[in-house]
Design a binder for these strands. Structure first.
Lengths: 209, 209, 209, 209
DNA sequence: ACATAAACGAGACGGTACGTCCCGTCTTCCT
DNA sequence: AGGAAGACGGGACGTACCGTCTCGTTTATGT
């Protein structure tokens, strides 16, 4: 999970690591990405802002994307702790459509929060062009929340609200991926109405009943 | 469409522009992106490889992403000319599901062609983080083929194969966006079986009939 | 004579070289050596002070010692031009001892001028440990004035004031080298009395007559 | 004589000092100067090679020049012990010229021994630019052997081979300094013939008798 | 057919950031 | 308490490119 420095020399001793510096680096990285954008966020800039030597960054991370990924994960964990740990779970009121619409509306809100948007766009962009990072991005950031949809859809299958032969991991993409693409690539506006429509189309299909 | 240099001086005279250099720059840019990757593709590198002065690039384009976007468009046009101009159109055999599956399978093939993959990934990544470029990327590269889906879905609506109240521009995202996301973000494998399934789910929905 | 950059790439085009930058670099290098000392004079510091990019230094010189050597040569030429070109020549009044004493006294004065001392000490030190530079230092800076002693001694041989079988190039070291060593290595005080004594000892020997 | 750390903290307790480390540091310093040269000899490199913590060096010495100076002194003492303590003394056969020539020829040999040359050049160079170290270099390394010349010259004065009014401390520079300068600054070749000539010129002068 | 003005190739320039090497200080754990 | 180990904040290294700016050298009309 953690970055293993490219073994060029001997690995640094993690027990001696400065917690203070680690945190300052995370804060600086996130702040800079929000303030000046990812391309103009530099390792030198992060180090300066964090009051840290560049080597301290290079010792523990392999690239600015690595730094940002960990910083963003840490941010998520903090947010989760702040929200009392139960933040992420899809409600099950018995009305699948309503439950999905609610969660997607919350996601729409989140996608508009600059503190979230700047770093996650940066990481997503990097991941598009850097497969290794992309896979880590997915495994660590994207997949866990998606798993909640899998769970909810399985419950719906139990309740008979979703066909039993449907693969939930694929099914969720019908409403999640369109939103993701609109957000990532600016292919269309992102509204509650839009996500509501996605849920309806996905659940009941395009063909007449 | 073409880049208008930021008017810092007098605009260059496009009629005197060297066609030879333009082509050499496109070729160099595409080749470098394939060979060394987008981040290590530099303007200096393109100029050197194209046997062109740097200023000739800065005169006509605003960034390496601009160069690449135009180069990629040109590449697409060439390919279209080679294929006899009629390449892009979604068949209408009367069987909507079959038609969509066929086109998506062709897209899957295309997504695996390195000459296509490297530059389009690069542009997509840049567009994620650079809204202006992202919108041009969408308008010039993404939207035209998507419009073909809109046309085909409208025909299906006429034929009664798709509900009349469905918005085709949104409907197409049900099967196109999941594929796009898997490709962009490595969120899952890309196979014919997968795209076939997407078409089935999208057309008939997840809920039992 | 001029530095030929280490041929790692293609040689830069000297005709396009910026005279203004060259001068600014010389000035900055000399000023810094005087102000902060040679070890704390850095290429980065020279570049900053000269208002020049580091690469402009690396393009034309191989090391800070190279820069300083050329700067010092230029300084010497300027000084020579200022003094009307005739500065360096050893007088020939017919009294060899007196002539040598006078020139050595002038040298003593020069050795105490900080604008001269700082860079020449720096170059001498570098030359002790870097043979290549040392030889250039000698050839370009040390040997030309020494040649004047050779000339004066040969005239003295003609006049019968110096034995004909004496090698002037070695003979001059008898009074020049002791002064040089005292200056370089702080092996003793440097005074007019001292240099006068050196001339006497050298001319008439240590053994009784 | 030994470096007194700049009293930033409490002075270390020299009685508890590790002899083993001290020796290892000397050996490492001398070896590195010979192998990679003085500028590329670093405190970190010495510590690593000696199997010693950096702090152990900083605790007992003030700079790498300090380390090297002590290491070189120690080396000299070892050599002296090996040679039976009587190595340094200028013979007195009654023939002053012959005695001086012999000793200078031995010096020529010594100047060519790489184990001697590398560190002493390094120290000399450092001393040129660092007066404090230069003076210690002279006092500890240069002056003691020079004193032997003073002694020999005084004996020669007693014997009537040198004029009584000659200052031996200056006189010795007539043949020692030229050799020193040729060695330090590469101003000329160093041969037995050259040193022999120096002795002759110095003893009998340049002027005809 | 030729003058002339633009685009062009080349690349020097002032800069920014890179990733690395050491500096000298500091902290930790061991002997 | 000294020592081995090495993380730390920092400064400089030498390199790679950035985007701007001259330089001659084509080239391509427009008289």
């Amino acid at each position: 999970m953690a970055h293993t420095p490219s073994a060029n020399q001997s690995a640094p001793d993690a027990t001696r690591r400065s917690e203070r510096s680690r945190r300052a680096i995370y804060d600086a990285a996130l702040a800079l990405v929000v303030e000046v954008g990812y391309p103009r966020t530099t390792i030198e800039g992060i180090a300066a802002r964090a009051g840290v030597g560049k080597q301290t960054i290079y010792r523990w991370w392999g690239s600015k994307a690595d730094v940002l990924l960990e910083a963003f994960l840490e941010l998520g964990e903090q947010a989760a702790r702040a929200a009392g740990h139960l933040s992420y779970a899809i409600p099950d009121t018995g009305d699948l459509a309503a439950d999905l619409k609610q969660v997607l509306r919350a996601t729409v809100d989140e996608l508009r929060d600059p503190a979230f948007e700047a770093p996650s766009r940066a990481l997503a962009a990097e991941g598009v062009v850097n497969e290794e990072l992309g896979r880590r991005f997915v495994a660590q950031l994207l997949e866990p929340p998606l798993q909640l949809y899998v769970d909810r859809l399985r419950a719906a299958q139990q309740a008979g609200d979703v066909r039993a032969d449907v693969d939930p991991r694929i099914a969720l993409e019908l409403f999640v991926s369109p939103l993701a693409q609109r957000w990532l690539q600016y292919t269309g506006p992102i509204t509650y109405e839009y996500t509501d429509t996605l849920v309806d189309y996905a659940l009941y299909g395009l063909a007449p009943r």
